[in-house]
Amino acid sequence: MDFNKIDFLSLDKTYQLVQGFSCGNDWINDYLKQPSNAIFDHRLGISSTTTLVYENEIVAFFTANCSHLEIPMEEAREIGLKDDLFIPAVEVKYLGVKEKYQTNGIGTYLLQFIIGKVLEITPVFACRYIFLWAVEDKIEYYEKRYFQLTGKEENGLYLMKFLIPTYEWEEE
């Protein structure tokens, strides 16, 4: 697959293609395909769904939004917080790669894209983490890519976190 030929398109431009998508997880597939879910949230501005399209086929997608999530007290202390346990974050609510493309590097390519976009906005909009909901059989995959399991589970999905690097600012 030629990654240079993948288009990142908004769900509202590709919704006619979603019925042909399956990542192997019914919960994630239903979120993308049901009109009361992804497209509804997208059009309301609650979350944004981006599809990766290759040769007129959705090969992957992710749904994300700006958020803030609670972190444990000891972690808050480690980063210098005294009493606020809610941290600005980008939450990746859903992420799926079409089954036939799951071993072609698309997932890694997609994670690199997401992390890159968050790194771009962080200096302006202060984002400390990427939180991502993962299916159980992909936890190890994400751990190899520096995501940590938080211990929180919901609807068969596991919350993982990726700490955004901070940079020392030089005063002029």
Rank of each mutant, 00 (worst) to 15 (best):
I46F: 14
L81G: 03
F3Q: 09
D41K: 06
S36K: 03
H68R: 15
G107T: 11
L85Y: 15
K144Q: 15
L157P: 04
S47M: 06
T50A: 06
V124F: 14
L69S: 09
G96E: 00
I6D: 03
C23G: 02
K98V: 00
E172V: 04
S22C: 07
S47E: 01
T166F: 12
T63V: 02
D41E: 09
Y15R: 04
V53P: 00
D2V: 02
F40N: 13
W133A: 01
M1Q: 09
L132S: 04
S48L: 10
D12K: 05
Q19H: 10
E78G: 07
I115W: 02
Q16W: 02
I114V: 15
I139Q: 04
D30S: 14
G107A: 05
Y142F: 15
E153M: 05
L157K: 05
I121E: 06
V92N: 03
E170W: 11
F21Y: 13
S48D: 07
T166L: 14
E168M: 11
I6H: 00
F147K: 05
T51L: 02
Y129G: 00
P88G: 09
P165F: 08
Q34M: 12
F40A: 13
L9D: 00
F8A: 04
A38T: 01
I6C: 06
A76R: 05
K93Q: 13
T14K: 08
L69H: 09
L52N: 05
F147T: 07
Y158A: 11
T51E: 06
G156T: 03
E120D: 12
N29Y: 10
D137T: 07
K138C: 08
L163V: 10
N56K: 11
S47K: 01
G156L: 03
F21R: 09
I115Q: 06
L119F: 08
V135A: 06
K5G: 09
V90W: 01
L81Q: 06
R145P: 01
E136L: 10
P72T: 07
L95T: 03
N37Q: 15
F8L: 11
E75H: 11
L9Q: 11
T103V: 10
Q19W: 02
K117L: 05
L111S: 07
K117S: 04
A76T: 13
T122P: 05
S48M: 11
V92H: 07
H68G: 12
Y129C: 08
T108S: 14
T14R: 01
I114N: 13
D84F: 05
S22L: 11
D7G: 08
M73P: 00
K152R: 13
I87S: 05
I106G: 01
L95E: 09
L157F: 00
S22F: 04
I46T: 11
N25D: 12
T63G: 00
E120Q: 09
V124L: 08
T14W: 01
L149V: 03
E140R: 13
L95K: 10
G96A: 05
Y167T: 12
L11V: 02
E140N: 08
